[in-house]
Nucleic acid binder design. Structure first.
Ligand SMILES: [Mn+2]
Ligand SMILES: [Mn+2]
Length: 885
DNA sequence: GAGTCCA
DNA sequence: TGGACTCAACGCTTG
DNA sequence: CAAGCG
């Protein structure tokens, strides 16, 4: 939208701002020195551009000084937030909220997240120049003292702005300081102070994508719109009504966050028994996933189904016990189910609801191939405007997954099922249906622990929460700790041991060690069980800042739950348990063959290898067994280099196509032949035998990387690795020429070198050394070589690891040569498609080989073919770094 | 892969 | 017993 | 400080 031409003079300071914007496209205000401000305004705008950030702006001398703060302000002095200074903005900008069009500079929604007045301590202009400004804010959210400290001054003076100057924004101590989650004010108070909207909502408003619910679909009558049998027949889909035992329901895959692409609808996740219903001319049958017949157990549901106005149908849904507050409770459902079948007591029948969410077959037509939303419309019509109680149509909503989930969780739901809007009904588990769980987190007092025989530190922490006067026990948490935490917390707890349980209701358990209730931790969980224990608890961290007495339950426990708990202890009621066991024990579906066989345990090289048929490399199909056999073959070749050398592993439990991770410490369960030791305070692992290597394979280690030194002299490197990492655009032959050049340079200073492939396009040039020099000199030497080459031929080499600068060049990575740094060992397999390996080769052959041809499977052939070990002299070469004067 | 909790 | 949950590195460089 | 890198 065009605005009237400015009359007022535009300050030079705003020139850059105006240059970047096209005011006929964006609704941002034009840069004009604005009136009606007292000269001390501040504003924080949340801006969902390419990257989410907060624009922190202080008014000074007629403009808004601006910083982009990626993480936004914090209320804790411990959180120093990077603030990149950006161009000055006109003062009118402080009220801007809306959408900057895509493609425009800084495109994306903006909200005014906070605003108010600010006041510098001392002379603001001098402080800015100095790079250290302290001030106080009086906004709606941010209050009190803050500082901006410059850490790097930008060279952005010229027309081509260089790197911008960088600052740190952080809270100074005063009464407004908060710590822990409370400090994350951007999370706790995400809404605009002007409109109350979130930045996402502003973004959605623009795109005109309105959230729609299925309820807004115009109601049609069955006669008018429901696809008729005749029409369906024409489509060739008419079919006989199948039996329930022939149908396996569609299942959802648990994921940790809503999908970001594709069209999805969201339904409530119910906590009950999944049930298929079959209606055939008034005759009803209800069946659960384990093929038990429940028709007689739920007569009310069966009766309601028989009243539906259809000749035949198969419906899918969930039978739930609905509590007074309207939630479905699996535990209550279990409780009321009669032992050994039979009908449910009448007074409990009325708590039961059958939520119906799908239709598979309708009046002689198999509708499973219809898109989900069509099936649901069909279902809605089928059930009628007022479905006979206790049938309920399970509605869905469309919209942004994050938003829907947040709202669902806030309203107390257990979670959501996301379903692909247009997908057909597919039996079994797939990614068309996703299970999204709400997670709750809360602080608890640690009131005790149990000891572990298997790991260091402790087995689990006993948690308590303040309720009225007393501390109430609320279960254990045993996961979420890393090694360090296990040791640290374990040591602290030992100092707090006491005989007296701090909780008023100590559980009767063996092996509990009580501690004084002083430590506070945060725990995430999915729900609180009926007797007050946490379900699926996981440790999130210690809360060092919080006194134990402040820890209270955020939401009151329903009184009923506590009463019931006492009931249970008194009567030891086990109602429902046998049934539950039975339900849970039956397999939910035929397992995939790969994991079904427990028989694929083999022994290779004297080491037990489980899941031997697991595919470790998708591309080639190489299995764990083949990997172990490979190591049996190359053990004698690899071991001289791997022996007593601190190593790091790349482990890929689900194969190399999935998530792999690094490991450099010993874990419980790793075999005895994997040794550990301490070097300079850090734990390292190493092996001395082929058995040790095979034990790594059993842990799904694919790659083995090693230090540049051995345990014999961990401070004195015994080789240098010059690692050549090409830009993806380059060919292997380019890397070969580089390697030869490195070799020649080394030759010239009298150092012999060897070369190996690395499984990809890269090469390693290895210079054996007598262990004589320290890490710093060795790394310094490697860097000198890298820098010299990069300097002489900047178009071919870089000595800087930034990928951006690598374009069309080779990164000469000298950083493999520091203490603790690792490089892949010769003969190590690589976790990449094809199961390639790192292979030593002769310099004279290097131009003729293709590194992709050396694989776990082809290794034997190549090894037979070669005349001699290309690295035969490496271990006997005695050479030292030259004196570099 | 293994340790942990809970139903 | 089985599902769910979690962990399994790290130091250096660069922006 | 935080992200990127290997
Ligand atoms: Mn911005
Ligand atoms: Mn490399």
């Amino acid at each position: 939208m065009a605005t009237a031409a400015p009359r007022r003079r535009t300050p030079a300071a705003l020139k850059r701002y105006n240059e970047k914007r096209r005011f006929d496209v964006t609704s941002e205000p034009r840069g004009e020195a604005a009136a009606r401000s007292q000269g001390d305004a501040f504003v924080v705008q949340q801006h969902d551009a390419t990257r989410m950030h907060y624009d922190f702006r202080l008014e000074l001398d007629g403009v808004l000084l601006s910083w982009a703060v990626p993480k936004g302000p914090s209320l804790s002095p411990d959180d120093k937030r990077l603030a990149v200074q950006t161009e000055d903005h006109p003062i009118a900008y402080r009220n801007f909220e809306g959408n900057i069009p895509h493609g425009e500079y800084g495109g994306g929604p903006v909200i005014v997240w906070d605003r108010g007045r600010w006041k510098p301590e001392g002379d603001a202009r001098a402080a800015l120049k100095k790079g250290h400004l302290t001030f106080s804010l009086d906004g709606e959210k941010l209050k009190g003292r803050y500082s901006l400290v410059r850490t790097r001054t930008g060279s952005g003076a010229g027309p081509k702005q260089g790197p911008k100057s960088q600052w740190l924004l952080f809270k100074r101590s005063d009464e407004y300081v908060r710590s822990g989650p409370a400090a994350e004010i951007t999370q706790r108070e995400p809404n605009s102070v002007i409109s109350g909207r979130t930045v996402k909502q502003v973004g959605e408003a623009l795109s005109g994508k309105r959230r729609t619910t299925a309820a807004s679909v115009p109601t049609r009558t069955a006669k008018a719109k429901a696809p008729t049998k005749a029409a369906a027949k024409q489509a060739g889909k008419a079919s006989k009504l199948p039996s329930l035992s022939s149908i396996e329901p569609q299942l959802a895959t648990l994921v940790d966050r809503p999908p970001s692409t594709g069209r999805w609808v969201y339904e409530i996740k119910y906590d009950g028994y999944r049930m298929l219903a079959r209606l055939d001319r008034g005759k009803v049958q209800l069946r659960s996933r384990n093929q038990l017949d429940w028709t007689r157990t739920f007569p009310g549901i069966a009766a309601a189904l028989s009243k539906l106005d259809v000749a035949s149908a198969i419906l899918d849904g969930e039978v739930c016990y609905v509590t007074a507050d309207g939630r479905s409770s699996f535990q209550d459902l279990q409780r009321v189910l009669p032992r050994g079948g039979g009908e449910i007591r009448a007074d409990q029948q009325k708590q039961l609801v059958f939520y119906v969410f799908d239709v598979l077959h309708h009046d002689g037509v198999d509708v499973r191939d219809e898109p989900l939303v069509d099936r649901k419309l069909r279902l809605k019509i089928l059930l009628g405007k007022k479905p006979p109680w206790p049938l309920v149509y399970s509605d869905h909503i469309e919209g942004d997954g994050d938003t829907v989930l947040t709202q669902a969780c806030a309203s107390g739901l257990e979670g959501l099922i996301a379903k692909r809007r247009d997908a057909a009904y597919h039996s079994g588990r797939s990614a068309d249906w996703l299970k999204l769980k709400c997670h709750r987190r809360q602080e608890f007092v640690i009131v005790g622990y149990t000891a572990s025989q298997a790991r260091t530190g402790f087995r689990s922490l006993l948690l308590g929460v303040r309720e009225a006067k007393a501390l109430r026990y609320c279960g254990k948490v045993g996961t979420g700790f890393d090694q360090a935490l296990l040791e640290d917390i374990g040591a602290r707890l030992q100092k707090l041991v006491t005989d007296e349980p701090a909780v008023s209701d100590p559980p009767r358990m063996r092996g509990v060690i009580w501690v004084k209730p002083q430590l506070v931790c945060e725990v995430e969980y999915t729900e609180v069980t009926r007797d007050g224990a946490l379900r699926h608890p996981s440790f999130q961290g210690l809360r060092e800042d919080k006194p134990a007495r402040q820890v209270k339950r955020e939401k009151a426990v329903p009184v009923a739950a506590i009463e019931k708990e006492e009931d249970m202890h008194a009567t030891a009621s086990e109602a429902g348990k046998p049934r539950r066991t039975k339900v849970e024990a039956s397999p939910d579906r035929p397992r995939k063959q790969s994991s079904a066989r427990s028989g694929d345990v083999v022994e290779i090289g004297g080491v037990r290898i489980s899941h031997a048929d697991r595919v470790m490399d998708e591309a080639s199909g190489v299995t764990k067994r083949e990997l172990a056999e490979y190591h049996e073959l190359v053990g004698p070749l690899l071991l001289p280099y791997a022996r007593k050398r601190p190593i790091a592993l790349v482990r890929c439990p689900q194969g190399d196509a999935q998530q792999c991770f690094f490991q450099k410490h010993k874990l419980p369960g790793l075999g005895d032949e994997v040794k550990k030791a301490r070097i300079a305070g850090n734990e390292v692992i190493y092996v001395e035998s082929q058995r040790g290597i095979l034990e790594l394979v059993q842990f799904n280690a694919i790659e083995i990387h090693g230090w540049g030194a051995t345990m014999d002299a961990p401070d004195k490197p015994d080789w240098i690795v010059i690692d050549l990492d090409p830009d993806t655009a380059l060919e292997f032959s380019d890397v070969v020429e580089a390697a030869l050049e490195v070799r020649d340079n080394l030759d010239r200073i009298g150092l012999a070198s060897f070369v190996k492939t690395t499984g990809g396009k890269g090469l390693h040039v290895v210079v054996p050394l007598e262990p004589h020099a320290g890490w710093d000199s060795v790394k310094g030497f490697a860097q000198a070589i890298a820098s010299a080459m990069a300097e002489q031929q900047p178009d071919r080499y870089v000595a800087n690891m930034s990928k951006a600068k690598r374009k069309g060049r080779i990164f000469i990575d000298y950083l493999r040569n520091g203490q603790g740094a690792t490089a892949v060992l010769p003969y190590s397999p690589r976790a990449r498609p094809g199961a390639t390996i790192a292979m030593p080769v002769e310099w004279k052959d290097i131009r003729r080989i293709d590194p992709k041809e050396f694989t776990v499977r082809s290794a034997e052939r190549w090894l037979k073919k070669r005349k001699r070990d290309p690295w035969a002299e490496l271990l006997t070469t005695r050479q030292r770094l030259p004196d570099l004067d």
